[in-house]
Simulated scan of single mutants.
Amino acid sequence: MVGIIGIVVIFVMVFGGYTLHGGKMGIVLEAAPWEMIMIGGAAVGAFIISNDMPSIKHTLKDVGKVFKGAKWKPSDYRDLLCLLFELIRLARQNPVAIEEHIEAPESSSIFSKYPKIVHDHEAVELICDTMRSASMNYDDPHQVEEVLEKQLDANLHHALHGSHALQQVADGLPALGIVAAVLGVIKTMASIDQPPEILGAMIGSALVGTFMGVFMAYGLVGPFAAKVQTVVSEDAHFYKLIREVLVANLHNHATNICIEVGRQNTPHHIRPSFSELEEALKAVKDAA
């Protein structure tokens, strides 16, 4: 919703200001379809050339994040802490019993309580692989933390590809707008024998190309890229929370302390309150 509001504000302010200042929308509307074919078509072509098919699909999927926002909501962070609490408590009480949950999370009675998390391959893999390593005596907290940090950095780098691809398109749009404008000038020069009023309209039409290239770059595609980067970076906190809790577990802190370490390392605007988490953990204990 916020993304849609932003787009509406951009169009209203730019074209509203133009018309209020006495500008005529006729020239813009008449030239826009042809300029869009050249500028938009060239931008799409360049985007296809510079990316493989998985990256193209990834980027197109990321565009939806501009309007949907972050995948993980505050309630999901609470659920994640509850899930980790159950897993750590079970691992300490019965190291053998935990194996069925981390080896087959899709059929685990613990994971099944949190369907949104269990359907996220990256989160489940991070939890299960780390707990499996701990059960194999690969329990040097500093070494595990370093491995997890590298894994999270690699995952984040991959997740940000859509943002980088959109930014590359945004960087090229002004130049493509100039290309369209130059072609318009070439067309105008071929009609140099026409009256001034006709030449003026043709030059104005040509300049629409420059306008549209710059407008799409800085008014639409560039902000889209920035928004995708913001959303991806915010979602990355979800996986960092997993690292913080599981590393605290390897330091042999009390289970409640491990969960509190994760809660406190969560950004404030998505962090569950202490009392809210306590109530959720109490419900988990009562259900056990």
Rank of each mutant, 00 (worst) to 15 (best):
F238S: 11
I49G: 00
G3P: 10
Q229L: 05
I257Y: 10
I186W: 01
E146D: 13
S163G: 15
D235K: 10
F85K: 05
A159C: 03
S108W: 09
P196R: 09
M212K: 01
D193C: 00
M38S: 13
S109Y: 01
F15R: 07
V245I: 06
L152Y: 03
V2F: 08
L87N: 06
A181Y: 04
A287L: 13
Q194Y: 03
T59D: 02
S108Y: 06
L81W: 07
G41M: 07
C258L: 05
N252A: 15
G16N: 07
H251E: 15
G22S: 10
M53T: 11
E149D: 13
W72M: 09
A123Q: 04
G222C: 08
M38N: 03
K240F: 01
G209F: 05
L183D: 06
A217Q: 02
P196N: 09
A288I: 08
L20I: 06
R271M: 15
V247C: 04
D62Y: 03
L160C: 08
K73M: 10
M53V: 14
Y218S: 01
L80F: 11
A288H: 14
F67P: 02
I117P: 00
V284L: 05
I102H: 11
E30G: 09
I49T: 10
G204V: 14
A206G: 12
V221Q: 03
S133N: 14
V245S: 02
A288C: 07
Q264T: 06
F15H: 05
Y218W: 08
L81H: 04
T255K: 07
V231N: 02
L29I: 04
I10S: 05
V28D: 05
A287H: 11
I186Y: 01
G222V: 02
D139L: 07
E197H: 09
E122N: 09
V231W: 10
P223W: 02
A42S: 13
L90F: 03
A190F: 02
D193T: 05
L29K: 06
K24V: 11
K71Q: 11
